[in-house]
C-alpha cells in the first residue's frame, strides 16, 4: 500500500527528487523492472487466456451434466463414474500406458546405438552434423504423410510382404502387419525415434575422449566402460528424449486412427470420438485423466535426473 501511494505521489511530482526516501537509482531500477514486466506480459496473457483457461475448462466441464447432445453446467460426477466403471474406457487407458511404455522402450533401444555411433564413434564434426541432419530431414515432411507412408509398407500387398515373399521367407502374405497394434508401434517408433537420438547424441558428443581412453588404459573392457562411464554421462540425454517421446506418444491419436484399423483406442482417440458425438463431458474426463498420466510420467522422469544441474 505504501509503495503504491509513493508511486502516485512521484508521478504527480516528478521533480521533487528524493521524496519518500526513494533514491533516483532505485526509481530507475523500478522503471526497468516495469519495462521487463511490460515485455513479458503479452506472452503471459496469451498463455493464460488460450492455454491455462482452456485447460481449466476441461477440468470444469468434466463435472458437467451430459445429456444426449449437450452438456449442462450442473455439477455432477456422473461422467467420472461412467468412465471409471466402464471396462472399455479403462482398457483404453491401459492401452495408452502400454503403448507408451513399449514405444518409449523401443525408441530407446533402437535409438541409443545410433546416438552412440553419431555422438561417440564419429569424431569428425562435419560428418556428425551431416548424420544428424539426415536424421532430422524427415521432419520436414508432414507428420500425417509419414503416418500414411506406413500403409503401403505394411499392407497385405505392401513392400515388406513383397520382399519377404521374393526372398522365400514366407509363402503367403502376412495379414497382421497393417491394421494391428504392431503397425501402431512400428509407426510411432519410426516417427519419434529421432527425439530420442538427438538429446542422447548431444550428451554423448560432450564426453571427453580422454575419459574413455583413461578407462581403457586402466584395463576396463567396453562393457564396463559403457555401464560405468558412457551410460551415466548420457543419462540426462535419455531423460530429455524420454520426456519428448512420452509427451508426444501420450497425446497421440492420429497414428492409431490411421494404422490400427480401429483396433487400438488410445485416450486421444476416445477424446476425438467423444467430441465427434458431442459427448463433451465425457471427452473432458478422458482429457483430465490423460493430463494426470502425463503429469505423473514427467514428474517421475524429472526425479531420475536433476536436469538443471546436468545441463
Amino acid at each position: 500500500m505504501m509503495e503504491i501511494a509513493g508511486e502516485q505521489m512521484r508521478s504527480a511530482a516528478p521533480a521533487m527528487g528524493e521524496d519518500n526516501g526513494v533514491s533516483p537509482a532505485e526509481r530507475r531500477e523500478r522503471q526497468e523492472r516495469r519495462t521487463a514486466l511490460m515485455l513479458i506480459s503479452p506472452g503471459v496473457l496469451w498463455m493464460t487466456l488460450f492455454m491455462v483457461l482452456p485447460m481449466i475448462m476441461v477440468v470444469y466441464v468434466s463435472f458437467w451434466t451430459q445429456t444426449t447432445f449437450t452438456v449442462e453446467p450442473e455439477l455432477t460426477t456422473d461422467s467420472w463414474v461412467r468412465f471409471l466403471t466402464s471396462s472399455t474406457y479403462l482398457a483404453s487407458t491401459w492401452t495408452t500406458v502400454r503403448i507408451w511404455g513399449i514405444v518409449l522402450l523401443s525408441t530407446l533401444l533402437i535409438g541409443y546405438p545410433v546416438a552412440l555411433f553419431i555422438g561417440l564413434m564419429v569424431r569428425n564434426q562435419t560428418l556428425q552434423t551431416a548424420l544428424l541432419v539426415i536424421c532430422v530431414i524427415p521432419f520436414w515432411t508432414s507428420f500425417l504423410i509419414r503416418v500414411i507412408a506406413w500403409r503401403p509398407m505394411l499392407g497385405t500387398e505392401g513392400a515388406i510382404n513383397m520382399i519377404l515373399m521374393k526372398l522365400g521367407i514366407i509363402d503367403t502374405p502376412l495379414t497382421s502387419l497393417l491394421f494391428s497394434e504392431f503397425a501402431v508401434l512400428i509407426g510411432m517408433t519410426q516417427i519419434y525415434c529421432v527425439f530420442m537420438v538427438g538429446p542422447i547424441t548431444f550428451m554423448l558428443s560432450r564426453i571427453e575422449p580422454s575419459i574413455i581412453e583413461a578407462a581403457r588404459d586402466l584395463g576396463a573392457g567396453f562393457g564396463r566402460i559403457f555401464f560405468k562411464v558412457i551410460l551415466p554421462l548420457s543419462l540426462p540425454g535419455v531423460i530429455v528424449g524420454a520426456i519428448f517421446v512420452s509427451v508426444m506418444v501420450l497425446g497421440e491419436f492420429a497414428t492409431a486412427a490411421s494404422l490400427s484399423g480401429r483396433k487400438v483406442n488410445l485416450l486421444g482417440n476416445i477424446i476425438v470420438s467423444q467430441v465427434g458425438s458431442l459427448k463433451w463431458a465425457f471427452a473432458s474426463v478422458a482429457g483430465v485423466i490423460l493430463t494426470a498420466i502425463i503429469a505423473v510420467v514427467i514428474t517421475a522422469l524429472l526425479r531420475v535426473v536433476n536436469l538443471r544441474k546436468e545441463m
Binding site: 533514491s23 533516483p24 530507475r28
Partner: peptide
Amino acid sequence: GRRLDGVA
C-alpha cells in the same frame, strides 16, 4: 553539478 545516479 548534475546528479547522475538514476539517470539512464
